[in-house]
Design a binder for these strands. Structure first.
Lengths: 366, 366
DNA sequence: CAACATTACGTAAACGTTTACTTAAAAAAG
DNA sequence: CTTTTTTAAGTAAACGTTTACGTAATGTTG
């Protein structure tokens, strides 16, 4: 078989258009384009495209426009993985927190998330509630995934964790917890906060005040708070009675149990300070069940100022922590290069007055 | 200056040991090793190390042991970013949900998170609450970060989102929402669920039942539920009265407002069906404020069975959704290659009886 | 207009893996 | 003891970017 020159030309042409068609078809199907595709289609080098994308100098306005147009046409999106590989920044943060589903942690998380996205970071959540083993596993996953920083919420910061994080050479900030190591934290001054809370009660005439504390022995969220409680009493010349302190685990159920314990072992309690809103809700629930009216017969004050305080019946007076802001600030701190060395911060607490504290008249108190 | 051969030898030796020292020092300092470092130290090629790491065949037991030992010594951890670049899997999922800080979403998230980590995936959370713009921004970020799948929780799934996700060719599953498009979802049968809920009320003698529905016009979480409410009434020969339906936004505050509205516009209501536990809590709160006793004077039933139902006073009877399981199953579905085409699932709901529904005696009802 | 500075690019190496292909050695088969 | 098969490795390309370096072309200066 023979082709004339014209035929050959035509044949070539056909192949060419056919190739074009394949290309066009592929465009329709192709899952995601690379910078190379863009470069080719715009007749420039990948370097130029990259420069335009990162607006570095080195191209004319004309080429910029053209490239941008091609990008828009193709719907090209850069691959953050490739980017991360080369410049060793993934623009993502790891968050370790106990029980995402509890109100406290989820408000903090929400603050973290908001600030992170504001600064163009993503956040990976790791729910550590179960056990320490899991935390270590998470830490490892976060390391492998090359997160740029870690915020560690509200759990006890074990030596093991510290070592792991040091080993991965990552910035970390603690929220609502702290540690013996030199790791920046952001939290409320617990001792002062409960001091203020029980002082608030004392100022309103209460003299027999119980406390539902957190997990027994917890050096972060229990011991300092008990100190605050004791100090407030002592400053007012009231002796501390061990039986007036019950322990819970910050959860609702434990609030019920602890309230019962307190009431069973003490006569004439007029107020209870609870180390979390959830436990306060538990106390409220127990008191409702045994028909003790709040605040008429007993006053209750909570801690945290989460939504459960708002929703409680009656609405719960509580010592508020700025949880959302703590989350926000935590990522700000984390990302602030300046802050690389420490600079922990105590956030202000404040009492939010609702309807569970009654002021006791002098006579009534006698 | 001249060196004898011996001198030269000695000099070389010194350099050599010195180099060794530098190397050792660097080991102490070095932030993270690569597979190359491991290979070099173990006297094998990177390929071998890689094979061992991924336990592919192609090495002797001896070398395996040696390499593993070197890895342990150096504390080497693979870089998931590099890994992700080449095999196009990041082992991370994106989760889009409204308001992480609300109980509903956070329980779902908790389920997602648990299952994801069980299957060695990480999850990136994106809090979409504010507006649609934000959702699109997240979608883009997730794409750039090359997540392997997306779970979309509880929000209306706009066409825009659908297109974006199709364009990125990612598996997606909807939780507690669905869409006109062919996207697999996992949710409760809302119509049936509230049908059962108000039927439960009817069976207990209630005849004048109000409803606090969700956001007006919401085709997912409001309209079908209203239908369920209507059907239950109609099946019992009770006519539907528009004034007995109030709308909220699923939040606590709106429950207060809606309850007030209902009570103001209706006489003799004996029960209210609420489209979320939070709104039920709002209703409870309002009723408490105006001294209407629950369930003696009015019965309340909620929806979701979140922790707020447990903590309510009195403990809230509610139509429970298996939120945690829904989260878990969502990621299972997402990761199941089989499921690639659809296969949506309706999860079972069930009524959890607590203390806010009273059974009305015949006489009393008249 | 020569000398130089600047601009607008392109080339290619690097980031840390995986994996197809190759090769030498060992084991099995004849 | 060959020949063939299997095993245990190594080499190098690829993934999609960024960026140091090089080089023409253009602009500026004297």
């Amino acid at each position: 078989m023979f082709f004339s020159v014209e035929n050959a030309y035509i044949w070539c042409y056909i192949v060419f258009t056919s190739y074009e068609n394949v290309y066009v078809e592929k465009e329709g199907l192709k899952l995601s384009y690379t910078i190379k595709d863009v470069a080719k289609k715009a007749n420039v080098s990948v370097a130029t495209v990259s420069r335009i994308l990162n607006n570095l100098p080195g191209y004319s306005e004309k080429t910029k426009e053209k490239v941008l147009q091609v990008i828009a046409e193709m719907g090209y999106q850069p691959n953050a993985i490739a980017r991360g590989l080369i410049n060793k920044k993934t623009k993502t943060l790891g968050v370790l927190l106990p029980a995402v589903s509890d109100t406290f942690a989820s408000v903090v998380l929400s603050g973290i998330e908001d600030m992170a996205h504001e600064l163009d970071y993503s956040v990976m959540v790791c729910n550590t509630d179960k056990d320490g083993k899991r935390t270590m596993k998470y830490l490892q996953a976060l390391r492998e995934k090359q997160v740029d920083g870690i915020v560690f919420v509200s759990e006890f910061f074990k030596e093991e964790y510290y070592n792991a994080i040091i080993a991965m050479d990552l910035p970390v900030v603690l929220v609502s917890t702290k540690s013996q190591y030199d790791v920046p934290f952001i939290k409320v001054d617990d001792k002062k906060a409960v001091f203020d809370g029980v002082t608030y009660l004392l100022e309103r005439g209460h003299r027999s005040i119980g406390m539902i504390a957190g997990t027994k022995g917890d050096p972060i969220a229990t011991l300092p708070r008990i100190e605050g409680y004791k100090k407030a009493l002592q400053d007012n010349g009231i002796s501390v009675d061990k039986r007036k302190i019950a322990f819970g685990d910050f959860g609702f159920e434990s609030g019920i149990t602890a309230a019962k314990e307190l009431l069973d072992h003490n006569e004439g309690l007029t107020a209870i300070f609870c180390s979390s809103d959830e436990m306060a809700a538990g106390a409220l629930s127990y008191l409702y069940r045994i028909s003790i009216r709040v605040p008429d017969q007993i006053s209750i004050i909570g801690y945290d100022n989460t939504k459960v305080a708002e929703m409680a019946i009656p609405p719960l007076t509580t010592v508020g922590q700025p949880l959302y802001e703590m989350g926000k600030n935590a990522v700000k701190m984390l990302l602030d290069r300046e802050t690389e060395e420490s600079q922990s911060v105590f956030m202000p607490h404040h009492i939010v007055e609702r309807e569970t504290v009654k002021v006791i008249e002098k006579e009534e108190a006698e």
